[in-house]
Design a protein around this nucleic acid. Sequence first.
RNA 1: GGGCCAAUAGCUCAAUCAGGUUGAGCGCCACUCUGAUAAGGUGGAGGCUCUCGGUUCAAAUCCGAGUUGGCCCA
Length: 1078
Amino acid sequence: MSEPVTTRMSRFGEVDDQYDPHALEERVFEYWDEVDAYEQTKQHRADGESYFFVDGPPYTSGAAHMGTTWNKSLKDVYIRFLRMQGYDVTDRPGYDMHGLPIETKVEEQLGFENKKDIEEFGEENFIQECKDYADEQLEGLQEDFKSFGVWMDWDDPYKTVEPEYMEAAWWGFSKAAERGLVEQGHRSISQCPRCETAIANNEVEYEDVEDPSIYVKFDLADREGSLVVWTTTPWTIPANTFVAVDADLEYVGVRAEKDGEEEILYVAEACVEGVLSEGRYDDYEIVEELSGEEMLGWSYDHPLAEKVPAHPDHDGAHEVYDADYVEADRTGLVHSAPGHGEEDFERGRELGFPVFCPVGSDGVYTEEGGKYEGQFVKDADEEIIADLEAAGAMLSAGTVSHSYGHCWRCDTGIIQIVTDQWFITITDVKDELLENVEDSQWYPQWARDNRFHDFVEDAPDWNVSRQRYWGIPIPIWTPEGRDDDEDMLVVSTREELAERVDQDVDPETIDLHKDTVDELTITDGDTTYTRIPDVFDVWLDSSVASWGTLNFPEDQSRFDELWPADLIIEAHDQTRGWFWSQLGMGTTAMGEVPYERVLMHGWALDEDGRKMSKSVGNIVQPGEAIERHGADVMRLFLLSVNPQGDDMRFSWDELRNMENSLRTLWNVFRFPLPYMRLDGFDPSETTLEEVDDDLELVDEWVLARLQSTKEAMTEELEAFRQDRALDALLEFVVEDVSRFYIQAVRERMWEESDSSSKTAAYATIYRVLRETVTLLAPYAPFVAEEIYGTLTDEDGHDTVHMEDWPAVDDYWVDEQLEEDVAFLRAIEEAGANARQQAGRKLRWPVPRVVVAADDDRVAAAVERHSDLLADRLNAREVELVDPDERWGELNYSAEADMSVLGPAFGGRAGEVMTALNEARIDDPTLESLEAAANELLDEPAEITDEMVSFVTETPEGVAGTAFGTDGDDRGVVYVDASLTDDIESEGYAREVIRRVQEMRKELDLDVEERIALELSVDDDRVASLIEAREGLILEEVRADEFSTVDVDEQGGHRKEWEVEGVDVELAIAPLSATSDAV
RNA sequence: GGGCCAAUAGCUCAAUCAGGUUGAGCGCCACUCUGAUAAGGUGGAGGCUCUCGGUUCAAAUCCGAGUUGGCCCA
């Protein structure tokens, strides 16, 4: 334990018996620190071709969840892969640290209710609190990301709150302003009355709530009757300015009767029933039919005119107008208040109406609200309803459950009001945006062509102003006393700021937050300019990341070379977010899309496919996954799912599977170490090339498989399908190396004396392991590091992550061999099946295995490798039946090919298929088959060669199993399981050997330990069969002789066994221990 | 309310683009093997391919309508 820390474990040194992720990862973290693995790796590629990856900055509130973890794992695997391919990859992580979410968290912590509390606390103090909070969260995130081995430049992340980054935003914004794309405007916006700021439409979250549902009658001024409108927001009635109809829609005047009183109501024809039943009228009669067109210009009286004296009464107010937002729903007439609704606002603007909005930014009626002044709008609903009822204007008042917008952060119901906001008028450059969309390559492509394209097409102007504190101040200065966009000054850098402002400012040290810049003024001639009070929408912060991450414009050194980004990787919610904001900012500021490739992944869902959420309580913390299985396993799982668009379902089962795969790799790796160590194998002396002549077939085969694995992985990774690349690698490790190659070479490794065959196997497995862990390194950086270190010692880099991505070595490529072995394995598998059917275990030899090959390719493979096959199947002899021959004693049946039968027989195809499948014949000819099939059919069918393939029916005494690859049948293996004395002799001997081995294990004897063996068999025939193989038994169990064993005296072991129904008693004792046994 | 994506074995996913008797891994059960391997091998159970229509000789696959889940938009 107190050994000095070595910089690297010695080559082929002792390793843990079992794969222990936690201990291993701890060791590797320490090792990375010791050798500066990350720094070295970056340095190693410093002269490579540059690759500009840009990190989408996670927001610094809350910890890293499974989705963020997936995201960073994906980034890490591709950054590592690119580095191994030789690129000098930009890997600066980023953090999004401004914005309302943090403000509301801090407000919560400080117990604030509204903006007034902030003003009292002091802007400067509040901003400091926000910064502290964001910094604290950032630290947590950094630790989370490091904990699962992400290698990014953690010492120097870009932070959106640093002056040089804020400057990047100013600069981009000023570029847009230079193009004339910045304007101030009166707009209807979504306002959070608690946060007292505009929020973007995409920050509005919709929830089902219960709201008033009122039908209001607007008395017509020039004629009898009233217009009926419906709304869920009584508080907008004071601002009613006009009523909208659809000119093309049919409307009716209805004489409605209730309690003996009659009145005329105007509604859309389609809505008559609904409205009258809402109003509980007793009876009605349609007295007038007219189009919306005919109603245009009708005027009516504002029902709350007296309560709200300031209500709109300009020319044209309170009349009926056409509008395209009208539907034949509810009443077909729409109460329109341009001071509130977005569509109302647009229509009001077209009509040239002044805007009347009697509601302040806090959702409280202003003086213009008349009677309601000072009330919060939602609270005023009740009184307004009462007033409408008192005025006889209420047709019906109830409630309705509908989805209504809420503030994404504080969950307050939003209100639509009209305020002054600043915009980047991206609608002016819509064509350019759509063109630029085409300039980036998306994985998957449909996300770009459908989702993103549609989103961009419909995007409105970008409202970039927020009436808050914790954000990048908008760098606009306007003449004192005015805040419009005429004569505005837009400052682009700190340098420019220092030059222009009246105060003394040091561009090197100034912090650009609101508390600092609000005091700065600019004087031009005799006009003094002050900054507008707003800060940027937080989405603007990250939108400039592609140059902000380079500290541009402050640092101009890398921009020209690197920009735009080669790659960004984020989840699909960023189509409306970062993918979009970057496109918008890139286009308005630079005329280009700032990224060339987008890998768009999905969200991390729970095991049932539901979103992980606090309220449902189904969140899986990445920390828990690491705790249970280790970081490598978690990464392997996250990287084993399709990264293109689909959501991921978390699965503990799959994590377990991944851990099993790594355990297999670990065992494969540790298996040859003791032997290599013992034999002093030196991979730098004994290279693969050196032992080429001694390589055996399996060696060449596994090397060929290694080449195709590398090829497949490279192809998949380059297409951003790391999941498929991983599949290929794990299949190679588990199926090919562990289950086949190691099984095949273990006897060579056991050889005690030096042999060229053993050395060849060492060299082969060394090459395979070393390249395998290199291929695994981007996925599971910890375990790959430890294995690599043990294999290479001084012979490699300090870290596996400095290795070049393994290239395909043409010399070892051998597709024919791969195919041969694929056939052999299929034959072996089928042979094992046949053996089991025949009731003959593998331990017992069989006299003969017959392989009936369907085609020449298979026949050639069997011919070439019949020795190997005999060995694997424990057969004394392998016989090949060529494709054009057939084995006697067989019956045949046919298997129908539906793709041929379908077109030929149409509706009868199914029936013919069944008949063909059921027919049994003695010889596999079309004639006999047709005859047999037609016996079963009502109408005869003409069968051709292409329609069927013949299948053999196994005769008695021989077991046969079909084999094939990729679902295609390629032939049949027959196992002749008949017994001879010789075979029985070996079989029984092997049974004895295995049992002695087990007893050796139970005694915990060293592998080398010699023993004495006593054997008594309760059957004379079997005893003599075993006797015939005494030599074999002694050799295999390392016994010197058969003798009587006194278990107690010699410290031995005695046991009764039943072998194939015969009682056998075995006793063993270690020879060296005889003297000092207790 | 609209757009996009998904739905196949108990679980995770292939097969869908170019229609032809649904597959793999894991899990489960039984048997088996075991000088790297809490491993390996063989067999088995387990599917109205989300539902309903349509096209076709033939649909998991193509088309239409719906259901459920996810993202986005209103």
